[in-house]
Design a protein around this nucleic acid. Structure first.
Length: 421
RNA sequence: CAUGAAUUGCCACCUUGG
């Protein structure tokens, strides 16, 4: 059984999650399921964006002994969080306590890292920290890393810096994770001077910057719409002895795309291929959005076909969403249908953003009842409506003078306590 | 045998610029 669990994990590392599903089902049929089987399985599914499968396995789990295993809950929570189902993760967190389990430091650090994807995540993270204090659990180095990242992804630059300082006051020595999260808080705002300063700090702390540091810095310049500077960092990292990776190329492509330089973005794409890197979903989705912004639908169709041939089964939700958005904006109905069909055959589950794109599209086309049905679908699939969801619908209704419906929605939104703004 | 932190791409509004 131990070996089978290892095989399960190996499938994951090779990106063969479908095989691991088969193996898992086989093990289930032969009563060979142990707690590590579940944790390994969840971990594989989490990385392959197949949360629904993990949730299903969890629900079908009847063995009480396994169900009271802390690792099981921790890895389920981790899977939910890496797939953006933060609300659900909090539900599980509550549920595990109700079942008498005591969260450990791994549970808390997983939950804290999940706060980077939640609206108002900073405050949720603070509550978790407080809860830990009450239980005499101390923050460790990893948790500080997660906390800084929570600040960064919520665009709270000051707080990121304060947390960074606080951890040092507590006697922790920052590592590359901490520096990178800090750098990223600046990068996300396009504050390239501060980002550069962090790079300097890394060097003077005697640490060797890695690709992540440089990539983040490229991103800082991308957001600042300074593609030439981004390019400069790209070259600097090469001189530093670091091979640009997929993310380096993508960040640079995006720098050009954001600056409206589609041709240069295309050039980087070609250069990436020439350097032996396989373009993945992310590079295609940058290109597609870039062409979409300049209204080149024929290029989109071409890329869309190319994708079918090149990446088999590796298409991810971001890419589908980008395609959907472009087709929706252009009002290309057959394109939209085509993508939805492909998602289905690829086994790629829609996320909240997918539903938002579709809702906006239906509203625009005056298909309000379809929009509402999509809204309900979304909630049924485990994505509770948030402020954005309501905003899209309300605006759609207002556009067609359905004032009464809008007001109803607004009331419903308040009643449900969705962050009223 | 199993679980935790950093870098790219997708959504309404807003802001800024075009």
């Amino acid at each position: 059984v131990t070996d089978l669990n290892a095989v399960l994990r190996r499938f994951g590392r090779l990106g063969k999650w479908k095989e691991s599903v088969v193996l898992f089902e086989w093990m289930k049929k032969h009563n060979k399921l142990t707690a590590p089987t579940y944790t390994s399985y969840f971990s594989v599914l989490g990385k392959a964006c197949q949360v629904d499968k993990a949730l299903q396995a969890f629900e079908e789990l009847e063995d009480q002994e396994i169900r009271s295993n802390l690792y099981l809950w921790n890895s389920m929570i981790s899977t939910l969080i890496s797939n953006g189902k933060v609300d659900k993760a909090f539900q599980f967190f509550r549920l595990m306590k109700e079942e008498g389990l005591v969260p450990d430091r791994i549970t808390y650090s997983t939950m804290i890292s999940g706060c980077s994807k939640a609206l108002g995540g900073f405050y949720k993270a603070q509550e978790l920290v407080k809860e830990m204090r009450d239980k005499d659990l101390r923050l460790d180095s990893v948790m500080y890393g997660a906390l800084i990242n929570v600040c960064a992804s919520n665009h709270m630059v000051e707080e990121a810096r304060a947390t960074f300082d606080e951890m040092q006051a507590e006697g922790f020595v920052p590592n590359l994770f901490h520096y990178c999260s800090l750098l990223n808080s600046y990068a996300l705002k396009g504050w390239h001077e501060q980002a550069e300063q962090v790079l300097a700090d890394i060097k003077s702390a005697g640490l060797k910057p890695n690709k992540v540091v440089f990539n983040s810095l490229i991103n800082a310049y991308a957001r600042a719409k300074l593609p030439l500077k981004a390019r400069g960092i790209f070259e600097e990292m090469t001189e530093y002895g670091l091979q640009p990776d997929m993310i380096s190329f993508c960040s640079l492509m995006d720098a050009y795309a954001k600056a409206g330089q589609v041709e240069e973005a295309q050039q980087m794409f070609d250069q990436m291929k020439a350097s032996g890197l396989k373009p993945g979903s992310n590079s295609y989705s940058i290109l597609i959005s870039a062409y979409g912004k300049s209204g080149k639908i024929n290029m989109i169709r071409k890329l869309s076909q190319e994708i079918d041939h090149i990446i088999g089964g590796d298409l991810d939700i971001h890419l589908f969403n980008s395609l959907l958005k472009v087709y929706c904006q252009a009002g290309v109905m057959d394109g939209v249908m085509d993508i939805l069909r492909k998602m289905d055959t690829q086994g790629c589950s829609p996320n909240r953003i997918t539903f938002h794109i579709l809702m906006a599209y239906f509203c625009k086309e005056d298909l309000c009842d379809l929009a509402i049905r999509t809204f309900q679908d979304m909630e049924a699939r485990g994505y509770p409506a948030n402020e954005t969801s309501y905003t899209i619908l309300i605006q759609g209704f207002v556009r067609y003078n359905k004032v009464k419906d809008s007001l109803d929605l607004l009331a419903e939104m308040h009643k449900r306590g969705v962050s009223p703004t």
